[in-house]
Amino acid sequence: MRLASIIVASIIAVLPLTGPAVSEESPRPFEATTLNEMHDAHKGGPLIIHFWGLTCSNCMAELSDWGAFSRAHPNATVVLVNWDQRGARHEQIGPALQKAGLGSAPSYALGKGFEEKLRFAVSPDWMGELPYTRLIAADGTATAFSGAADFAELGTWLTKKSQASR
């Protein structure tokens, strides 16, 4: 039984970003190379990376809205990155995403190590405020915003960028 679980977990671990529901499992660590891997894996279309925290009340307040947005745009790639730092409770990430309807979204969590360096790699402008969202177009052009999302505007961006990438 335990061996079977390990095998299942191993298979899940190597699934691509667009793979089936994995959020109930432990989130994958967000390391120095993760961002580039995400970009490489999604060169053909727009990518939304949403940084959030269990410790951030504003993030938790809008998490289910991200779930609704994801359902309304099934072809969009929305990646969730949990950015809780010291004392992070990774076991709560999967259930929180599941509850918000984001159980099938690729899920990462801040890896162990130098948070400032990992954050700098995401953007030198990002001061660590949450929620924080990066929008990456198919050509690699990135924009970002802090705070609650304007989902209507986000939908427009997605439509525009999806058309552009065709």
Partner: peptide, 8 residues
């Protein structure tokens, strides 16, 4: 005017 946690 931002609904974000600056943690600072």
């Amino acid at each position: 005017k931002i609904d974000a946690c600056p943690h600072q």
